[in-house]
């Protein structure tokens, strides 16, 4: 079985009722969280669900992990239908939702892992062996027998992460796995996903464009319950290549006007500082073709190009092009 996750025409509408004095119904509201989404995730593939709050990412993860029932459509995990075979489906998935709080803080890291291992049908010895192995991978052997309440946030998250792997599930569902972690720990977790879990089928949601770019083989861009684009990060970004963005660092002061005469240039921004240096940012239809003309224009004004760079479009640019809005205001910039 090569397909870890199959989602077909999945819909979910949340109904909420507003009541006065807790009894009298005032109004009823329907929120269409998923409007018939389709996607698959193969073994050995990391797929990211990317979108702003309310796009339907968490609902998708919760349906796949049997916490929420869909209205219609089909969700299959490792061959098991999450509606009609929820227990079997749960046996084959490792899930992270809810962050670092979702373990017993009065137990040690090792006790947490053994406990959950036993619940996932490992024998006592298997659970102990597997817990030791995962504590080693997470670099927590020294702290294994200390209560989780005395761990740092990052260490707790590592135990949560280890718990999702305790039964070696073929499929992993990670809802914002690095949310709230400091950059160092987030980097470690990402590295671990990429280096150690490449055999698994992984579906993860994230707000962080860098994270999606770094981890995902494929991305499903979700907006208001619909998939608006899908593909590899490179493919998606290529779709937005209506223009290139070039940045030139220049010694000397130049003016914007001469650049605007170059064919294909749509926008020019020049910033200068007191140290006789300028930076020119140019939006141009074909950056490679216009590069020679841009360099000549700098020289014709007495400037000297110190360096230039093509700025890659980001996944946020893709999302903006597809939906007219940004995914998140506070994207993580570390990497």
């Amino acid at each position: 079985m090569n397909l870890g996750i199959k989602v077909h025409k999945l819909t979910k509408t949340y109904k909420s009722t507003k009541r006065k004095y807790g009894v009298i119904r005032v109004s009823r509201r329907e929120t269409k969280a998923l409007k018939g989404i389709d996607f698959t995730v193969k073994r050995g593939e990391i797929v990211g669900l990317l979108g702003p709050n309310g796009a339907g990412k968490t609902t998708t993860i919760k349906i796949l992990s049997t916490l929420v029932l869909p209205d219609s459509g089909e969700a299959i995990v490792n061959g098991y239908n999450v509606v009609s075979q929820p227990t079997e489906a749960r046996a084959t998935i490792g899930v992270i939702t809810g962050g670092e709080r979702s373990i017993y803080h009065k137990l040690s890291g090792r006790e947490n892992l053994i406990f959950f291992g036993r619940l996932y049908r490992l024998t006592r010895n298997e659970a102990k062996e597997r817990a030791d192995e995962l504590l080693g991978i997470m670099g927590l052997q020294e702290k294994a027998d200390i209560k989780v309440e005395d761990y740092s946030s990052g260490m707790r998250m590592k135990i949560v992460f280890a718990r999702s792997l305790i039964h070696d599930p073929p499929t992993l569902l990670y809802d914002e796995p690095t949310l709230g972690l400091d950059p160092g720990f987030a980097r470690e977790i990402r590295q671990l996903i990429r280096d150690k879990l490449h055999e698994k089928c992984i579906l993860l949601t994230t707000h962080y464009m860098n994270e999606a770019d770094f981890l995902c083989d494929r991305i499903e861009l979700l907006h208001e319950g619909q998939i608006v684009a899908s593909g590899t990060p490179t493919e998606l970004k290529r779709q937005t290549r209506a223009f290139d963005v070039l940045t030139l660092q220049i010694k000397g002061v130049v003016h914007a006007e001469p650049f605007k005469g170059i064919p294909g240039v749509s926008e020019v921004t020049v910033t200068s500082d007191a140290s006789d240096a300028s930076a020119v940012r140019v939006h141009v239809q074909n950056g490679a073709a216009a590069l020679r003309r841009l360099l000549d224009t700098v020289e014709s004004q007495g400037g000297k190009v110190l360096r230039f760079a093509f700025d890659e479009p980001t996944l946020d640019d893709v999302f903006i092009q597809k939906t007219g809005r940004r995914i998140a205001n506070g994207d993580s910039t570390e990497h």
């Binding site: 046996a91 192995e133 070696d168 073929p170 698994k200």
Partner: peptide
């Protein structure tokens, strides 16, 4: 990743779970 008695390959892992 060290070797353990617990199957780590995808197919075997799934079988062990169920």
């Amino acid at each position: 990743l060290q070797s353990t008695n617990i199957p780590l390959s995808v197919a075997d892992g799934e079988a062990a779970l169920l």
